[in-house]
Design a protein around this nucleic acid. Structure first.
Lengths: 214, 214
DNA sequence: CTATATCAATCAATCGCTTGATTAATTTTG
DNA sequence: CAAAATTAATCAAGCGATTGATTGATATAG
């Protein structure tokens, strides 16, 4: 029973994650979620207290899977650039596998209100940001990266490029020429392409001397 | 009177654009909009038919201002790279001035349903995409850009980097070290920084030979 | 020049419906 | 039996939308 309870809660969270990511927090109704999960509507409140509680539970379940990805990366003996490549590898995989969560994460992060929730979401993402900053700064300090790189903007590019593809799949599919929402395509075509591209893009930017002729 | 009528509709559209971008389509209520615009709720339906009609009106009002930005760019005698630089200049300005619209545009574009609306939004954006593709292809053809660039991904980077900053201002502000939502900061610091960064980033990627050692 | 008719604009009131949440009763479990 | 889990029924609140009445300006008619 204890096991079943957990499984049931987990099942609800799976469904909620999907519905939230498809319709947004406001667009998704508790009836939608309970209906799709085949549970009574009252169970959502019974387990999670409220709709917002359910949403937070969805988010918090993912935290751990994101927290410890990059912690160890900083302490290895790799060169800064190798760390970046490794980061892109890990990040590329994570993105594809959790794209539905990523979508919901960044959509709600854009909403102006909901400060309590936004703070929680932001703190999760900031872990990755901080780790990446350290790597980039180290690269500059060691003279392996160009001295005048814009660290903050590099991260905006890394996260932004991924978000653009994940969050506006209809645009991305038209541009790329295949359906980025299709799981098979995603795994076989999108994932490697993102990785190759991001590596080349960052390598060119980080390791090219930018003469300031202007 | 005729003038006042137009101004009133325009005023409603201004308010609606702001409220929609802050709360999303579902999160914004017609009462919110009519209240903030100081008009009777029924006026929204009287003028625009429905909530969705109002939303579409907000979007369509912007179309023209986006359509003809880049049309002429393709037909000038400039080199592909100069066109790209010019594109970044124009795009950078547009972004800052219409960031609230951009936000609402991409948020709703991410929603899976709403096909009618998404199609309209997508068609607007595709105009820019097509123009930029032509420029990049031309650069490759003329041998000024590296032959193995990923055109689609370059565009995802261009649009995605901007979107990341605009759509997740709380993240971007933390990373950049100043409030990207502040109009003054936006104009004086963000705008030039985006332009400089994007030019360097694209220049490095487009004009660096990418050896495929792997 | 009045008087009448027409029309877009505006309003308060209210419609039917959905929302998130709660209740009280029932079933399941240990 | 007692506790936990589950259910159907119900709640007030808020939603988008519609209604019928009213306004004031303009056009028409006598």
């Amino acid at each position: 029973m204890e096991k079943e309870k957990i499984d049931k809660k987990d099942h609800i969270l799976d469904v909620a994650e999907k519905v939230f990511s498809e319709h947004g927090f406001d667009g998704a109704s508790t009836r939608m979620i309970s209906g799709e999960a085949n549970v009574n509507m009252a169970m959502l409140n019974y387990y999670f207290g409220s709709k917002e509680g359910l949403f937070i539970a969805v988010v918090e379940r993912k935290i751990t899977s994101f927290q410890d990805i990059l912690i160890n990366l900083g302490s290895t003996g790799m060169s800064p650039w190798d760390k970046i490549e490794q980061y892109i590898e890990i990040y590329g995989d994570k993105v594809v596998n959790n794209n539905c969560f990523q979508k919901l994460l960044y959509r709600e992060l854009g909403i102006t209100r909901r400060t309590e929730l936004s703070d929680k979401l932001r703190s999760i993402l900031m872990i990755n940001v901080g780790e990446l900053t350290k790597i980039l700064d180290e690269g500059v300090r060691l003279g392996q990266f160009s001295a005048d790189i814009d660290v903050a903007m590099v991260m905006a590019t890394l996260y932004g490029t991924k978000n653009y593809i994940i969050n506006t799949p209809l645009m991305a599919s038209t541009m790329l020429g295949f359906d980025v929402q299709d799981d098979k395509m995603m795994e076989e075509k999108l994932k490697p392409r993102i990785k190759i591209y991001m590596k080349r893009l960052l390598k060119a930017y980080l390791m090219t001397d930018n003469d300031n002729t202007k």
